[in-house]
Computed example of a mutant assay.
Amino acid sequence: MKKKFIKYALLMVSVCTLSATVVSCGDDKNDVNNPIIDPSQTSDLDYSSAYAEQWANYMVTVSNLLKEDANTLYNQWNNGYANTFKNHNTTEYKSAIDCVDQIFEGCIDIAGEVGDTKIGDPYSKYTAGNKTEALYAVESWYSWHSRDDYRNNIYSIRNAYYGSRDGSINSNSLSALLAKKNATLDTEAKEKIAAAADAIYAITQPFRNNINTTETVAAMNACADLVNFIEQELKPYFDTNINDDATLDPIVKQYVDAVVLPTYKELAEKNAALDTAVRAFKASPSNANFSACAQAWLDARAPWEQSEAFLFGPVDELGLDPNMDSWPLDQSQIVQILKSQDFSNLNWKEGESDDKIESAQSLRGFHTLEFLIFKDGKARTVK
């Protein structure tokens, strides 16, 4: 998740009433000749047959961009970067231990982001008295999928360490290798990973309604423990004691071939299926097709979140992370695009200003599509 710190004046729309479960602004007051809701009420925006075509056009535009970005990411790894990483003969990766260090750094980064930003930022805002701001800081709150996202982020660490995607420990994995050298340290690593995943899922669903809880604090602490362990114990042990190419090359190969490539392949496939579901909705808007879009979004979301321990290489260099996963959104501008149908603002070119690029990225990706498909944790309905 590439978090864009857009001014909260753009994100935090007018809120008429705020309960523990729903943000609501009452009845919409739309001109029948201009049915798009006023930008100040975007948190309560409902799909309507009065602007069904505009809504579906935006959904298709975003789902197509997601499909293209997912394909680019897989193809970049499959057609070159995978071998570059495994062969480690570049200025960036000169040895297998450089690659292992990159694996650990990716795990440290996402564990820290989950604890400090994804969970910690809403918690800090809430406990400081900024409750509305805290609600809007929660990633994936339209779908109420936050806990699953965060746990999948921890699973991305597990997968990197286990050399598999199903929770089994491959013989050519960091875990299996460490178990032979220092079984106690390996056991602690597995326990820390499991503790973080379990603590996150112990938060009552949805997270946005349970920010200020003991479970939230426990999840933040478990993520911090995992960061400190990898940073201070796991990575230094490998750097000092297990750092030769002959030993580590099979580990790096297994990581790429059994974790990274299959994750990105599934991401491409699931986003293609999501695009198909969205186009079916455009052709025939119905509650059933809205629900199909919601399920396809959830299916596509999982491999993305399970890739966040390896946000290096093409996903970083090509700007694909913020393209696909910027948060928070600029909801006011999303409504303006619904009105104007000018989708050129979703695209950017290399060399453009950071503001232009970030603005474009905040109007596309998983969360824009989530906003268009979900409301209050459920698929939207046709009205």
Score class of each variant (00 low, 15 high):
Asn287Met: 03
Phe290Ala: 01
Leu274Ala: 01
Ala268Trp: 03
Lys270Val: 08
Phe290Cys: 02
Ala296Arg: 15
Pro285Glu: 05
Asn271Pro: 09
Ala280Leu: 12
Ala294Glu: 10
Ala288Asn: 13
Leu267Ile: 03
Ala294Trp: 09
Phe281Met: 04
Ser291Tyr: 09
Ala292Phe: 06
Ala277His: 01
Asp275Lys: 07
Ala280Val: 10
Pro285Arg: 10
Cys293Phe: 04
Leu274Pro: 01
Lys282Glu: 03
Ala283Gln: 11
Ala273Phe: 00
Arg279Val: 02
Val278Ser: 01
Val278Trp: 04
Val278Ala: 01
Ala273Met: 04
Val278Arg: 08
Ala283Glu: 12
Ser291Glu: 14
Arg279Thr: 08
Ala296Thr: 15
Lys270Arg: 15
Ala292Lys: 15
Glu269Ala: 06
Pro285His: 07
Asn287Ile: 03
Pro285Asp: 06
Ala273Asn: 11
Glu269Val: 01
Phe290Gln: 04
Ser291Pro: 08
Lys282Thr: 01
Asn271Met: 07
Ser291Ala: 15
Lys270Cys: 10
Ala288Leu: 11
Cys293Arg: 10
Asn287Cys: 05
Ala294Pro: 12
Val278Thr: 10
Phe290Asn: 06
Ala280Lys: 14
Lys282Gln: 08
Leu267Val: 03
Phe281Arg: 08
Ala296Phe: 12
Ala273Gln: 11
Pro285Gln: 07
Asn271Cys: 11
Ser284Ile: 08
Pro285Phe: 00
Ala273Gly: 05
Ser291Phe: 06
Ala294Asp: 10
Val278Pro: 05
Leu274Asn: 00
Ser284Pro: 15
Lys282Ile: 00
Ala292Glu: 12
Glu269Thr: 08
Pro285Val: 02
Thr276Gly: 02
Ala283Cys: 07
Leu267His: 12
Asn287Asp: 14
Thr276Val: 03
Ala283Val: 05
Ala288Thr: 15
Asn271Ala: 08
Gln295Ile: 15
Ala277Glu: 02
Ser286Phe: 05
Ala294Ser: 14
Lys270Trp: 06
Ala268His: 05
Ala280Phe: 04
Ala296Gly: 12
Ala268Phe: 02
Ala268Ile: 04
Leu267Lys: 10
Asp275Tyr: 04
Thr276Tyr: 00
Ala294Tyr: 09
Lys270Glu: 14
Gln295Pro: 14
Ala292Ile: 06
Ala272Thr: 07
Ser284Thr: 15
Ala272Gly: 11
Asn289Arg: 14
Leu274Lys: 02
Phe290Val: 00
Gln295Thr: 15
Ala296Ile: 15
Ala296Leu: 14
Ser291Trp: 09
Thr276Cys: 00
Thr276Glu: 04
Leu274Phe: 00
Ala273Arg: 10
Ala296Gln: 14
Ala283Phe: 05
Phe290Gly: 04
Phe290Lys: 06
Ala288Val: 12
Ala292Met: 10
